[in-house]
């Protein structure tokens, strides 16, 4: 069992969830209620990682991150070193790849909140921020939880994009899915199966916990 890879996978999944969630909530809210121009265009763009082969996405990110070009060298100056073959690089890739998994469920649950419930909050004197905190987010909670579960599980299982831009550097970019692939390549099927089973069990447990939280969060809301 490659514990370093396991820890790296968890780290990647956790950071992806933490960083992506606020972005996804803002985007989803904007798409659900905002007067956005080119709304379907933006939605299509967010959905793109779902249909694009990971290798294609990985290739474009590789080009974007490459210090040979202006964008890559700009990124290099921001992050201090090249994003290719780095944890930061695969984290950014993971954020992009997981956009649809995070935005979609939250957007759907925002859209399911009747307009007049939000208006009732305004008329009751709640500011936009209070309305979001006390009405919108609790009502969208099941969607947010789905987004967390999907993003977390999907990041654990991510392979193509990470391999393309991260390669397989132990402790830096070799996450569990890549470690499994390496073991299979080396005909160490026994090790690969142990790690696969661990990944499977962990994913199932993570999703179960998150859904349990969802149910509790929904019934337990009250005004403080």
């Amino acid at each position: 069992m490659d514990w370093t890879a396991f820890a790296l996978s968890l780290q990647l999944a956790a950071w992806t969830v933490v960083l992506l969630l606020p972005i996804a909530i803002m985007l989803a809210r904007l798409l659900a209620w905002g007067h956005v121009r080119f709304k379907s265009g933006i939605e299509a763009l967010i959905m793109l990682p779902l249909v694009l082969p990971p290798t294609v996405l990985g290739l474009y990110l590789l080009i974007a991150f490459s210090p040979q070009y202006w964008f890559g060298s700009f990124l290099k100056s921001v992050f201090g070193s090249s994003l290719v073959f780095s944890f930061t690089g695969i984290l950014i890739a993971s954020l992009i790849v997981n956009l649809p998994f995070a935005v979609q469920p939250i957007q759907r649950s925002f859209e399911a909140i009747p307009r007049n419930v939000r208006e009732a909050a305004f008329v009751s004197g709640l500011s936009r921020w209070e309305t979001m905190r006390r009405i919108e987010l609790p009502l969208a909670w099941p969607g947010i939880v789905s987004a967390i579960a999907l993003t977390f599980a999907h990041t654990l299982g991510e392979f193509g994009v990470i391999l393309m831009i991260g390669g397989s550097i132990p402790g830096e970019t070799r996450v569990l899915s890549i470690a499994i692939y390496d073991r299979v390549q080396a005909f160490r099927l026994d090790q690969a199966s142990v790690m696969s089973a661990a990944l499977l069990a962990f994913s199932v447990i993570a999703i179960a916990i998150v859904h349990m939280l969802a149910r509790r969060g929904r019934s337990g809301t009250h005004v403080r």
Binding site: N116, A120, V123, T221, H222, V223
Partner: peptide
């Protein structure tokens, strides 16, 4: 004070 046609209560509270 506005009473909406379908009441628009906060369903989670």
């Amino acid at each position: 004070g506005l009473v909406f046609q379908d009441y628009a209560l906060f369903p989670h509270l």
